[in-house]
Every structure is written in C-alpha cells, then in structure tokens.
C-alpha cells in the first residue's frame, strides 16, 4: 500500500507548492492524534472537539465545492426522474403529456392484469433460481480458485471474462448456442444420443425461463466467485491450522470456520445481486423479448414494452416502481451489514 512511499512525494510536492501559494494553510493537523484512523467509523466524523481546532470555513467550502457536481447529478438525474416516476405511476400520463392524478388506479389495474401477474411470478422464479444457482456455484468456484496455485492468474482471467464483455453482445452468442436447427447445444445433445428431435429452447415457455436463468447465472458467476474468494483470503490461516491440529475434517472446517466467517461477504453479494438480477433487462430482451406468451417478462422488459413501444409511460413507470420496495429492503439490509462490520472493527 502507499504507506511505504509516504515520505517522497510529500517532500517534492511541498517544495513545488511553496511558490504558487505562499500563505501557509494550517489545516486540521490537530486531529491527527485524535484517533481518527484510516477507514474510521462514519459516526466519528463529526466530533465537536476536533472541529474546534480546524479552520471550519475552508474545509466546509471545499467540501461543498467538491460534492457539487456529484450532488447535481444525483438530484437532477436520479432524484428528479425518480419523483417523475412516482408522479407518472399515480397519474394518467401518456407520451408527451403530463397527465392528472388518478391515485393508485395504475397499480390496481396492473395487479388485476394477467400479464403483470405473470411478470410478477416470472420475476420471483427468475431471481430466486438465478441467485440460488449463482450462490452455490459461486461458492464452489471460489473454494476451487482458493486452492489453485498453478496458472492462477490465467484461470482467474478466464473465469472473469463473462463479467467484462458487454452483456447484450455475449447474450447474442448464447442466442446462437440455443438456436434449435444449427445451434451447438442441440447438436451436442443429438451427438450424445440424449435427444432425437431439436429442443425449442427459447420457444417453449419453461425452457425459455431455464435459458434466461442459465445465461444470467453465467453472467453473474464471476462477481460471486471473485468477491467470495476475497472473503476466503481474508480468513486467517491460523484458524484452519488450529482446527487441523485438533483433528477437524474438511467438512467441519468449512462448516464451522469458512461459512461463518464469509457470511457477511456472502450477505452483501446476495443482496447486491438480488436487486440487479431482479432488475435485469439485457438478457431477457435479447433472448426472448419477454416471450413466449409473456413467460419470461421481467419488470424491466414489461415496463420497456409498455412505456416505449406501447407509449403508456404511466403504466411503464408503475411497473418499474414495483422494484422499489425490493430496493429499499436491500439498501436497509446492506447498511445494517456494513454498520455491523464497522462496529466489529
């Protein structure tokens, strides 16, 4: 880490800087000894005794100036659109019109709509099975990567590839694999004698769901594996050595050392991934466009269809806002995990 090179850039830069700004700025040196360590808790930031010794004005002005661009983006391009989405979902807005207040009519209509109900069911099936698959396979892959030494960099590089390539494009590759007549999947199954007629992967409602789950798992696996791997590497080796000395078997070590210690990491990964899986658009859009018979529609693809192709912005906004309660739950849980972790530190 940068600690080692601490002295050098310090001196040279200080020398450079002496020219342009001759006025020395005493800036908060007083609190260095105050135990404000690296990565300290957020709560510690506002201790009144420390603030007293800093020229409060310059730091505050700098603070507001530095966050201004980011804050403008958050307010103008996230907060404002979010307020618009809320308004649209309770109004009868169509493309180009602002609409008038209709209460929860859009939500009520949606909940009675069979396509929306199907979408709700699809979303649960898609998210639950993808996240479960990614968790199990990601944990397995992380444990394997943890013990591999030869060709480590190469193997990690290969495994990470699906994360890097644009999803819409790699999904095109999968589309071609699933192609019934010329696709390599059916060709292989036929060669192996497992099937005699072509399987309509994306035309059959249940197989289509299976297909999008497979591609989503493929896409998300690197994130799980790499993050869990980082969690594994943070576990002190001595724990395992001590357990081994006591004659604990591999399963026992996994169950009583590995699993409890990577639980926080696993929790964060699963929460993160749940919201992103639920909000997935690219894979379903490229592979099935929500079909066949709306059996793979997710909130995002349905709201895209209603809001852009159908021109019903209000319905589309209402659909995507169904993601919001999940988002709130995820944020709350995430903050709780992070807070608990910092409390232990």
């Amino acid at each position: 880490m940068p600690d080692g090179s601490g002295g050098r850039p310090n001196e040279s830069a200080a020398g450079d800087a002496a020219g342009p700004s001759p006025r020395p700025l005493p800036c908060g040196v007083g609190e260095v000894g105050g135990g404000h360590g690296v990565g300290g808790r957020v709560v510690g930031l506002a201790g009144p005794t420390r603030i007293a010794r800093i020229p409060w004005g310059s730091e505050r002005l700098a603070g507001y100036a530095f966050i201004a661009p980011a804050a403008a983006i958050i307010v103008g391009l996230v907060g404002y659109p979010f307020a618009l989405a809320l308004w649209f979902s309770v109004s009868d807005a169509w493309v180009g019109e602002f609409g008038r207040f209709v209460g929860l009519a859009n939500y009520r209509r949606l909940l009675q709509n069979s396509i929306f109900r199907q979408t709700l069911q699809n979303s649960i099936v898609f998210t639950a099975s993808s996240v479960a698959l990614k968790t199990v396979l990601g944990l397995a892959l992380a444990l394997l990567l943890y013990r591999i030494h030869g060709f480590r960099r190469l193997i990690r590089g290969a495994v990470l590839m699906p994360f890097v390539i644009p999803t819409a494009l790699s999904t095109l590759g999968w589309w071609w694999l699933f192609q019934p007549t010329y696709g390599v999947l059916n060709w292989t199954l036929k060669r192996l004698g497992m099937i005699t007629t072509d399987i309509p992967w994306l035309a059959d409602p249940y197989l289509a769901m299976l297909s999008v789950v497979i591609v989503n798992t493929w896409r998300g696996l690197p994130f799980y594996a790499m993050t869990i791997l980082a969690g594994l590497m943070a576990i002190p080796r001595e724990y395992y050595e001590a357990a081994e000395a006591d004659g604990a078997g591999a399963w026992y070590r996994f169950r009583h050392i590995t699993l409890p210690l990577i639980k926080p990491v696993l929790g964060i990964v699963v929460l993160f991934s749940t919201i992103l899986t639920l909000a997935d658009f690219n894979i379903v859009f490229v592979l099935t466009k929500g079909g066949p018979m709306n059996m793979t529609h997710l909130f995002s693809t349905l709201s895209f269809q209603l809001g852009t192709a159908g021109g019903k912005i209000s319905d589309g906004a209402a659909v995507s806002l169904f993601l919001f309660p999940v988002l709130v739950a995820v944020v709350t849980l995430q903050l709780r995990i992070i807070r608990r972790q910092t409390a232990y530190e």
Partner: peptide, 11 residues
C-alpha cells in the same frame, strides 16, 4: 444501488 432499469422511462 439503484439499477438503471428503474429510472429509464422518466430519464
């Protein structure tokens, strides 16, 4: 944490 798919219509 907000996924882009939540806000594309109002955006």
């Amino acid at each position: 944490l907000v996924p882009p798919t939540l806000l594309f219509l109002p955006l």
